[in-house]
Amino acid sequence: MLKTLITAAIVSASLSAAATAQENETLRVGMSGGYFPFTFVRQDELQGFEVDMMNAVGEETGLDIEFETMSFSGLVGALEAGRIDTIANQITITPEREEAFAFTQPYVIDGAQVVTREGNDEIEGVEDLRGQSVAVNLGSNFEQLLRDLPYADEIEIRTYESNIEQDVALGRVDAFVMDRVSSAQVIQESPLPLELAGEPFSEIRNALPFRDTEDGRTLRDRVNEALATLKEDGTLTGISEKWFGVDITAPVSE
């Protein structure tokens, strides 16, 4: 009887360890699913640049990628609470975020872009945002970029969960600020009367944040190695060219 109980205990412990190991082999990736062409849903299928990139990371690391979609503004809280392991939704590296999270190397290097309704001659770039209402996605870094401008107190900044492009096209807000690549894609794909205003400003670098714990840093290092390999073998370039027609994963000078 004792031997049976010991055997059962060993089996139970082994199954528990196996379940834990299996859980550790899953990378839970949070994203909004509403930021074309990086992460979006079309015909009930989650797709986009960052979806393909994370699937490639999964193949390289042997990790099972589990996508979890939620509002963009809730992603950081979900990461902090441990409900997800990282965020793949154009998270820009900032000093404040570097204090809170362990980041991978950048996988997108871009610039912030002003977008207006077609024919808006009053705004020809970021320097013309004085006295204007400007929309940004709630929880994004673009709000902070605008607040860092020397004339930020002259800009009416509005935060949006969605419909940012529609409100600019309808004249409810004067402009919006988004990354250059996404802005160009939105204009190309959308029937809305929108146009780029001026040149990109303030270089931004997107990377994957992990919790700054021993386990989080270990997982970050594993993913970071995969990103390095995917850059070296051209996989990231191929994914970028598929979605954007250009390589957004390296500095322009490279």
Rank of each mutant, 00 (worst) to 15 (best):
Gln113Trp: 09
Glu96Leu: 05
Phe38Thr: 04
Val114Lys: 10
Gly33Met: 04
Gln113Val: 05
Arg97Ile: 06
Arg28Gly: 00
Gly62Ala: 06
Gln22Thr: 11
Ile93Glu: 14
Ala78Asp: 11
Val29Pro: 02
Arg28Asp: 00
Gln47Asn: 09
Val115Gln: 05
Thr39Lys: 04
Glu23Tyr: 05
Ala81Ser: 15
Glu98Val: 07
Phe49Pro: 03
Ser71Asp: 13
Leu63Pro: 03
Glu98Asn: 12
Ala56Thr: 03
Asp52Ala: 14
Gln22Cys: 03
Ser14Asp: 07
Phe103Gly: 01
Glu23Val: 01
Ile84Arg: 01
Ala18Trp: 12
Thr94Lys: 01
Met31Thr: 15
Ala56Pro: 11
Phe101Leu: 08
Gly111Met: 02
Ala13Gln: 13
Ile91Val: 13
Ser14Glu: 08
Glu23Gly: 12
Thr26Gly: 08
Ala13Asn: 12
Leu46Gly: 07
Val108Asn: 11
Pro95Gly: 09
Asp85Trp: 00
Met53Ser: 06
Phe67Asp: 02
Thr94Glu: 07
Pro95Leu: 01
Gly77Val: 08
Pro106Thr: 09
Ala18His: 14
Ile93Trp: 03
Arg42Met: 11
Glu25Lys: 12
Gly33Ala: 05
Arg117Ile: 04
Ala19Asn: 14
Ala100His: 11
Gly58Ser: 10
Ser71Met: 11
Val57Leu: 08
Gln43Val: 05
Leu79Arg: 01
Gln47Cys: 04
Thr26Met: 14
Gly30Tyr: 01
Met54Cys: 09
Gly82Ile: 06
Gln113Pro: 12
Thr92Asp: 13
Gly30Thr: 08
Gln90Glu: 08
Gln105Tyr: 03
Gly30His: 05
Thr104Lys: 01
Asp52Trp: 09
Val115Ile: 15
Val11Met: 11
Asn89Ala: 12
Ser14Ala: 14
Tyr107Thr: 00
Glu99Gly: 15
Gly62Thr: 02
Ile91Leu: 07
Glu60Met: 07
Asn89Trp: 00
Ile91Phe: 04
Val108Pro: 06
Asp110Thr: 11
Pro37Lys: 08
Ser32Asp: 15
Gly33Pro: 06
Glu60Lys: 14
Val76Gln: 15
Ile91Gln: 11
Leu63Tyr: 10
Ala18Lys: 13
Leu79Phe: 02
Thr26Trp: 03
Thr61Asn: 10
Met53Lys: 02
Phe103Ser: 07
Gly82Cys: 09
Ala81Phe: 01
Thr116Leu: 02
Asp85Glu: 07
Ala88Tyr: 00
Ala17Gln: 14
Arg42Ser: 14
Ile109Ala: 04
Thr39Tyr: 01
Phe49Glu: 02
Thr26His: 12
Ile84Leu: 10
Val108Lys: 04
Ser71Gly: 09
Phe49Met: 11
Thr26Ile: 15
Asn55Gly: 05
Ala17Cys: 14
Glu68Gly: 04
Ala88Phe: 02
Gly48Phe: 06
Arg117Pro: 05
Glu25Ser: 14
Ala100Leu: 15
Ala88Glu: 00
Gly82Ser: 09
Val76Met: 14
Gln22Met: 11
Asn55Lys: 15
Glu45Arg: 14
